[in-house]
Simulated scan of single mutants.
Amino acid sequence: MKKPHPAIVALKGISLLIIAALIIFPFLVVVSTSLASKEEVISSGGWVVWPQSISFEAYTTILSGGVVSRATMVSLGITVIGTALSLLATIGMGYALARPHLFAGKPILLMVLLTFLFTPGLIPTYLVVQSLGLIDNYASLILPVLVNAFNLIVLRGFFQGIPEELYEAARIDGAGELRTLWNVALPLSKAAIAVVGLFYAVGYWNSFFSAILYLNDSTRWPLQVVLRQYVLEGSPLAGNVSSAEAMLSSPTSIQMAVVVLAMIPILCVFPFVQRHFTQGVLTGAIKS
């Protein structure tokens, strides 16, 4: 290949710098505003690019046992439990559908693929959740989205990509299907499982519409719904917050602190699964 012209290389570098600045600058403003003092936020018109003095007043306020602290624990619980249950169900279904002689395997796979084209409507889904008695129950945030069709297809393709000789060797050694899954399939599928787990975790952590729809008690709402309340309306949930949380800091710094708090878990998890991301998605897609 010909070596690219220096002007082309420079143009690419400038373009990447501009794109990076467009991504980093809003994030910097959010973090800086959350760390600025109340007086500095007010004097700067509500947004701070670089705080003159760092203040954790906004974080102390939202984490002082009020609605944000409770909502954060709710979101963490839903994310951890939901991701674990979704991975368990998706791995089981993906492995079963990857085996060649599964009874009714093709009709089940066809039903899964049809969900890509025909999603359930909002009203039918709500009626099903209501008929199961899940209104005002955290299970309503997990069970309706327990298995994602895309994630299922990715894992199925990954399990199919494992050489059949390994499965046959396990059967010759007397291993059943569960033992084969545990000792053969899962250790070879860590990349795909990490990616699927990240997809599920991000989905559960960022979900807010289901909580608004199924949880009538606002004290049970997860963090994303509280974040929406802060950012859109500039105020916490009425009747569920202390006077300190409502008055100590400026509304903008409180909003930005909640935004940062909502981003931290995903930012902490993503670097550990990033190296598996491309490998897991591409392998699963190619093999499926």
Rank of each mutant, 00 (worst) to 15 (best):
6 P>D: 03
8 I>K: 13
12 K>H: 13
13 G>F: 14
31 V>G: 10
35 L>V: 00
39 E>Q: 15
44 S>Y: 14
51 P>A: 07
53 S>C: 07
54 I>C: 08
56 F>E: 07
62 I>D: 00
67 V>R: 14
75 S>K: 01
76 L>N: 03
82 G>T: 07
87 L>C: 01
89 A>F: 11
89 A>Y: 00
92 G>Y: 08
95 Y>V: 06
96 A>S: 13
97 L>A: 01
99 R>E: 10
101 H>F: 13
112 V>L: 03
120 P>V: 02
122 L>H: 11
126 Y>K: 02
126 Y>N: 03
127 L>W: 06
129 V>F: 09
130 Q>V: 02
141 L>S: 01
149 A>E: 02
150 F>N: 01
154 V>H: 11
154 V>R: 05
156 R>W: 04
169 A>G: 09
172 I>L: 15
178 L>C: 09
179 R>K: 15
182 W>Y: 12
183 N>M: 14
184 V>Y: 00
195 V>S: 01
195 V>T: 12
202 V>M: 15
209 F>E: 04
211 A>T: 02
217 D>L: 07
219 T>C: 01
224 Q>N: 10
245 E>I: 08
245 E>T: 06
246 A>K: 14
256 M>N: 11
259 V>W: 06
260 V>G: 04
261 L>F: 07
274 Q>L: 14
277 F>L: 09
283 T>P: 02
284 G>I: 05
